[in-house]
């Protein structure tokens, strides 16, 4: 159920880039992470539960209004924790 360590690293690096203002680079990393996450979710549909979908929606909203810290927070402290601990756990 847990995401591979490399994905954790990728997401962590991506969020660090968002938090330090390197949005263009961060967006490239985010794209890669989302591709990996989508593949994982395709193999394990339980990852794509209602809470994760809601979290992704919040992240997307942040991205659209360029709230980069909000986006990093949602990915790092909400969605990734959920992916790491499994859908049955609450954050």
């Amino acid at each position: 159920m847990s995401a591979p360590a490399s994905d954790d690293d990728l997401l962590s690096k991506c969020c660090d880039l968002f938090r330090t203002g390197h949005h263009a680079e961060a967006s490239v990393s985010l794209d890669k992470w989302l591709q990996n996450w989508t593949s994982s979710a395709a193999a394990n549909p339980a990852l794509m539960d209602e809470a994760s979908c809601k979290s992704l929606g919040v992240a997307l909203d942040c991205q659209q209004r360029h709230d980069w810290i909000g986006l990093a927070d949602e990915l790092e402290y909400v969605l990734a924790r959920r992916v790491r601990t499994g859908p049955e756990s609450t954050v």
Binding site: R19, C62, R65, H66, D67, I69, G70, A72, D73, E76, Y77
Partner: peptide, 12 residues
């Protein structure tokens, strides 16, 4: 939030 932009992390 300033104009909807988070000024600092809400977590750490």
């Amino acid at each position: 939030l300033a104009n909807g932009i988070r000024l600092a992390s809400a977590w750490q």
